[in-house]
């Protein structure tokens, strides 16, 4: 509790993230109205006139769409970041353990992948397997692999320099065992911080992909597509654009603040100083 009080960003970020997660999970069991239900008579109704946040161009309840959109957005972001983390951490720690040419290959491959923006690779993947949730997950996941590979490698290299690793090596432990028993537990905190920040990026990327039509397919609600659908109604019904825009901004801000706060608390360098 003391830690929380000393880190207001952590507190605020945590609260926003918690709220978001709660909304997403709540949408699985309850929304004010079925998110895909069409009530054409309430078309473009402003907030409070129909439901809490008004209705969209089909007369669907915007509050319900945003709630269900939170689930879609978060689940894609979580799965994509998990995939990226698994791949990246594996490659990064192995590169640190083996050094030499294996490290060179992994890191140069990471550089190459890093050079492609997520949106570009998503459009390429969409052209191959067609647009959809899988495309979005793969594209964002692939984009995350080099990020985690770099972070994991540089952190792992530091751990490999430490005395207890030297001790383990002289005791005859192999590189893989050392990685699992000593390196991974020691870099886990750093990885969690990175994952939180990557979640914010993933939410933004998912919204961008859905905006371009290669993300969540209709009729499943998605913040990005709500934003894209709202463009032509901007002058008549600005709330169609503002509300999903706010949702995206809030989610990204929440995860970023949480990530920053977590870093302050569990960064290994800071901890060593104490």
């Amino acid at each position: 509790m003391k830690a929380l009080a000393r880190h207001p960003t952590l507190l605020l970020g945590g609260l926003v993230t918690l709220l978001l997660l709660a909304t997403a999970f709540l949408s699985r069991v309850w929304t004010p109205a079925p998110p895909t239900q069409i009530q054409i008579t309430r078309r473009l109704a402003p907030p409070l006139e129909a439901g809490l946040l008004g209705a969209d161009h089909f007369g669907r309840d915007i509050a319900s769409l945003l709630m269900a959109g939170a689930w879609n957005s978060l689940s894609i972001a979580f799965v994509a970041v998990l995939l990226g983390m698994a791949g990246g951490v594996l490659l990064g720690t192995l590169a640190a353990a083996w050094r030499g040419w294996a490290e060179e290959i992994v890191m140069r491959l990471a550089d190459v992948t890093f050079a492609f923006p997520a949106v570009l690779s998503a459009i390429m993947i969409a052209a191959l397997i067609g647009p959809g949730v899988t495309t979005a997950v793969i594209a964002i996941g692939v984009f995350n692999v080099p990020v985690f590979a770099r972070v994991a490698r540089s952190a792992a290299l530091q751990i490999w320099e430490r005395d207890f690793v030297l001790a383990a090596r002289s005791a005859g432990k192999g590189a893989l065992l050392i990685t699992f028993h000593h390196v991974l537990p020691n870099i886990a905190g750093l990885l969690i911080v990175q994952a939180t920040i990557q979640l914010a990026m993933a939410i933004l990327a998912e919204a961008g992909l859905s905006f371009l039509g290669v993300g969540v397919p209709p009729p499943h609600p998605s913040w990005g597509r709500m934003l894209s659908d709202s463009q032509t109604y901007l002058s008549q019904a600005p709330h169609l654009a503002i509300l999903p825009g706010l949702a995206i901004a809030l989610a990204v801000l929440g995860f970023n603040m949480l990530g920053d706060g977590l870093r302050d608390v569990i960064d290994p360098k800071l901890r060593r100083k104490r």
């Binding site: 895909t36 239900q37 069409i38 089909f58 669907r60 039509g213 209709p218 009729p219 032509t232």
Partner: peptide, 16 residues
């Protein structure tokens, strides 16, 4: 198809 009339109609048809 990606034309606005088609995608909107498809979404409405799916809901109906």
């Amino acid at each position: 198809p990606q034309m606005a009339y088609a995608s909107r109609s498809a979404e409405l048809i799916a809901a109906l």
